[in-house]
Amino acid sequence: MSKVLILAEHDKGALKKVTLNTLAFARQYVAKFGGSYDFAVLGHNVGAVATALQGFGAGAVHVADHADLAHPIASAWGKVLADLAKSIGADVVVGPASTTGKDVLPRTAVRLGAGMASDIIALTDSGAFARPMWAGNLTGNVKISTANKVISVRASAFDAAEATGGSSPIQAVAADPALAGSRVKFVSFDGVQSSRPDLAEAAIIVAGGRGLKDRFGAVTEPLADVLGAAIGASRAAVDDGFAPNDYQIGQTGKVVAPQLYFAIAISGAVQHLAGMKNSKVIVAINKNADEPIFKVADYGLVADAFVAVPELTAQIKALRG
């Protein structure tokens, strides 16, 4: 029997969907090994997040609400999460493999004497954790040999869990993060302003590469607008300053698996494919027919993006009236 503690991800008081993808993994884990799961909500003024999680079948929703937890400072969050796991007897701590999860969870693992498996995409029949390695060219099945286990979950590999009704009790956690976080000071956050869906949650993604140059926005935005899509980018487009870092998809950026992915002027390097090759339908638009992106695309169009994408945008707009 296991007790799984799930670290909830949220942004400015709103629950993020990756929490529910992570929950889907936790349910599989509990179905296989027996036990139950609880949520941990860390932050400041996060009451609404806790309430939003009450209908998902958890034993409890634990809330550590503290001014010193307002930003996810890893030393402070890692400690509070580990202390909570100890106090409720959780032997498994899971969270999304977001930048927050990647930052915080290893610290929790050390405090629990737990081994940690990163970025897992499946629970195998034999109970191993499957995780992509070598930019997803191989999948490693790993076992954790410690009694306590910490796992970060690749959200795109699990469909978001559904609500089950009911109302899990909310329990306040008396957290004192001050000491653990005292040698770190939050200075600022320079956020990407966008009214578009989050890359991790979008059904359609329009991604652009270096080939779009300084017309990156002019080409991708109108198409994203007609489709209600999120915008993504290759590393090269970000490196060259055409798109913000938050847009990067790939081995070292975000990993996505939308229903529909447009790769526009992206060559298809292995590191980019690592972040998008599990998309349901892939469209490649590139002027060079020999690029590797066409090897993974369901539909390829060999064309100049500066001509083809505005045309595509206009035709879809016409269709949608």
Binding site: G115, A130, G136, L138, G140, N141, L301, L312, L319
Partner: peptide
């Protein structure tokens, strides 16, 4: 000692290349 062990590697199933469309209209 170690806490995490790789017990086996597998090759993920690859994607197959699809079709090349002739123009935007066919793509849509």
């Amino acid at each position: 000692g170690t806490k995490v062990q790789v017990v086996g590697l597998t090759t993920p199933s690859g994607r197959k290349a699809g079709v090349i469309v002739k123009d935007v209209e066919e793509l849509v």
